[in-house]
Design a protein around this nucleic acid. Structure first.
Lengths: 160, 160
DNA sequence: TGCACAGGTAAGAATGATTCTCCGCAAAGA
DNA sequence: TCTTTGCGGAGAATCATTCTTACCTGTGCA
């Protein structure tokens, strides 16, 4: 099944160190915390949100450091910026593999969605079709909608 | 053919008036100019770019008015905000029909792309699949890539 | 151990984008 | 016409992000 990722599978310190090492970045306390927060926070956090969580564990970390660090993650390919239409805060995604986004119109949350079948479908479509004067590199589908909280249906209500 | 829209088909003043009227907005000189600029400018302009063009025709229009007006267009459903990852300026799209975007990684230009076949493909995919706990309303595909300027091939070069 | 060096960090100033406030004016309705 | 309402302009205010500066830490090396 390839339903929305549930981030959360809390990463071990070793995994974090490894990721930073692979990206060629020194593993400072601040960076480990920032990377961890990025992986753990739901809905693609803003710098502000990352900062909030990080200061909970090491209160001295400055917002400027969070910004600079997130940027360095982006250039190192560890992280990417997420395209969003509403709100003028930048959002970050720790997952750099190709994937798609479910954007909740109500809460502004952005949920990762990943399905190789869908990738294949889209890739195939453009491979067939070709675009005049444009060479596609990557695809990202934004699905706007609303969360449904498993409302009780008429039937399930009857069962009670 | 459903290749990228080429905006530009310059709208008549009557069409503009009509659009504003349909949206329930007063048709002031400023609004007409702003709407026209939005329709005419390529690549999904920022408020700043709209302002630049508008002041070319009516120099007194203030940037604040452009912002306010664009927002009112958005709430009226005349216009929408475009999701973009890079740069921290907000961009607007006068086209509210469902469509997709080609994002040029080099120039940051955002080109509209429209193809009912693609819509159908995506819609069909999710209709089959269904998303747990999420009700999709609309889909927008972001194709990141680079413009190809019809480079001369080995052959076409030989012809010269 | 002692010494430069590279890179990181915190703090706050600076910048840039967007929103807000306030006031005069023009348009729509009575 | 008189009134009410909304619109637009100017500039202040706010918010997000970047830059500057100075300090600090860990590292390599004599």
């Amino acid at each position: 099944m390839h339903t929305p990722h549930s981030h959360h599978p809390v990463p071990t310190p070793e995994q974090l160190q490894q990721q930073l090492a692979d990206a060629g970045l020194r593993a400072t306390r601040q960076r480990l915390l920032i990377l961890e927060s990025l992986l753990v926070l739901p809905g693609h956090p803003t710098a502000e949100q990352v900062h909030q969580r990080v200061t909970g564990q090491l209160s001295s970390v400055s917002l400027g450091t969070v910004y600079k660090t997130l940027d360095s993650f982006v250039v190192a390919g560890l992280t990417r910026r997420v395209a969003s239409a509403e709100g003028s805060r930048r959002r970050y995604d720790a997952d750099c593999t190709e994937h798609h986004h479910l954007v909740c119109a109500d809460t502004q949350e952005i949920i990762d969605y990943c399905d190789p079948k869908l990738d294949e479908l889209i890739r195939g479509f453009f491979a067939d079709k070709g675009l005049p004067g444009f060479q596609p590199h990557s695809f990202s589908l934004h699905v706007t909608g609303s969360r449904v909280v498993d409302l009780p249906t008429a039937e399930s209500a009857q069962q009670a």
